[in-house]
Design a protein around this nucleic acid. Structure first.
Lengths: 199, 199, 199, 199
DNA sequence: AATGAATGAGCCTTCATTCAT
DNA sequence: TATGAATGAAGGCTCATTCAT
């Protein structure tokens, strides 16, 4: 009843074990989905006892939540907006933004697919996703820099969120159902659409 | 091995029973998702024995498939494109189209949420959804009528599919995460974006 | 609780129905075994309602019991020992006896296979089988006629029962596991063995 | 889908548990037959959780298969043909062989009854039994030793199989339906019969 | 810290049997 | 007589989670 506190690993060996569990989980859940992957299976794939599994993660859901957070961090981390060229055109900026999102969807795409599916089912996961999305949307506003003043749309914040939603939907579709074909063409079309919309 | 065939109800009372099962399923799956809703639970909610459940539906998946079909029929049915005014502007046409999709998402929205979630997980369900989407996308092309000649986009078929994907994503987002606020504003924005894109 | 008396059909139409049920049962049980054949399936195959099924047979087991009795009657019925030639040799007599048993095993052999399997599981069925076996064994003694005096075995009754057991085992094996090959050779060998044993 | 492997017990306590399950299964299946004994029932009788049951056995059939193997091992193990007296008569050899089979049928006779019943129903089970039978039949040929040259039967291999079939049928009958009475008399009769047949 | 044997609630599904019509 | 919709106990099996070692 009184739950044993989940272990917070501080030593390297432990970290490795926790990471092994995560890697195993990503692998298996990407292949077979969250519901069809059992904790025992994950532990075995990670070459760790089921007891160890439960010493690192309160339950299966907690593991999943951490995985989602990890993915988002991986997707967001490598951005360095400060290093953008000063004199990019609007088109180039939007194009770059879309490419960036495209790139993010290239990281563990199968797992992201599973994520987007599960996010619909639980507000808990949904909330994390919102956090990330807001960040990405804000990033777009920043990227626009001085061009912001030329935008005809009044509520830029909302607009950027809608733009992100749209872009992700189309990219998602392109990645999974068109198997990643015509990335470039899609990026171009989206760019045109967004530029037309904003300016 | 050779199971007794699924019952095809012919009398009113039976129809009611089958419908009761469906209603119960929609209710529970909307609340807790497909995977967390058991057949026994559905039967109990429908006030029907589990045996009756399985006499109407081969298995849980078959029930789900019927539900999806029902939803699609409800969404698609009430359209009558022939009765559109002859002299609508492009903006009005697009606006109407988006409104139509918005309306569709208002039917059992929570269940549709679950549907879109499951579609990601199984090509089987995905296929049904595609069918419906293609119809809706084609409908848009038809609605454009004579304006089609003025469109600058070359591949209108693909464009209409992308537009639908986008529109649905945004509407979906608006419905569930903004709880349906500013439908009008969103519709207006989307209209502008699409018109700008196409013409 | 108070069981409705099982119907004893007196009219032709009813007889037909009951027979249809039996035929269907034999067919299905021969193919798939007793345990894998459901009463609903039998009723459907017989083109009769499940209610009708239960008006003719108290339960599934009662149907089976009747089938066993029927088979035994079919196997035993067509014998007419009185018409045997007077001057048969011992060998010919034994050969004829074995052939007779072989023939019996040719009647609905798959169902008999199922029967022999189930007989092991229920004393009820077992008893019926004993009855039949005793009759067959006695028949052999009768067939031997005047040769009886020349037999060296003391307890002919027991001997004849053992002989039957043996013969059936070998025939059974020949029918099902050797797919009925070398019936003649097997009959010949058995004849030799028995003649050697008795005389 | 990818089930956690069946547990291979290494410690004594576990071995005991697995054995308890087997013992319970033998007991119940002997009493009520394979089909009428449920896995939950076996687990309960063994005082073990159903989960434990399925950690030791893939499914009910796998348990059964192990039981059959165990029985065969018990029946075959204690044979040491090399220690036979050199100068046994043919009669004594055959008598000994039959006694050996008789003894084998004394081990868990009720379960063996169920086994022979199931063998008729599934080729899968039948195959295992064949393996064992072939061994026993071959053993007989070996036992005959130098007497083999004096045998008048041409195909000794087949003959030994038929003899085994016969002997088992009679023994089986003696054990269950005559409740083991006159073992000696039956053995004597069978011996005579076989010797007469072979030589 | 780590293990993994053990648990048992709960899942999906079947089928012999009843009974209102 | 006949129907067949309806029942629900029971079966085989899974898997998240616990806890003694």
């Amino acid at each position: 009843m009184a739950p044993v506190e989940t272990r917070v690993p501080k030593q390297k060996r432990s970290m490795e074990k926790k990471q092994r569990i995560k890697d195993a989980a990503v692998k298996l859940m990407s292949e077979k989905g969250y519901h069809s992957t059992s904790s025992n299976e994950i532990a075995k794939e990670a070459d760790v006892s089921i007891g160890t599994f439960y010493s690192y993660f309160k339950d299966k859901k907690a593991l999943y939540t951490e995985l989602v957070a990890d993915i988002y961090n991986m997707v967001l981390e490598p951005v360095d907006l400060n290093s953008l060229p000063e004199d990019m055109s609007v088109e180039d900026t939007v194009y770059m933004y879309i490419s960036y999102i495209f790139k993010g969807h290239g990281i563990m795409p199968e797992f992201q697919r599973e994520m987007s599916s599960l996010s619909e089912q639980s507000d808990e996961f949904r909330d994390i996703e919102m956090l990330y999305k807001k960040q990405i949307a804000e990033m777009f506003v920043e990227m626009l820099g001085d061009y912001r003043d030329m935008i005809k749309v009044s509520d830029l914040k909302t607009a950027s969120y809608i733009i992100l939603t749209m872009v992700e939907a189309v990219i998602h579709d392109t990645m999974f159902h068109n198997k990643g074909k015509n990335k470039k063409a899609v990026t171009r079309e989206l760019t045109a659409m967004i530029v037309n919309y904003l300016f």
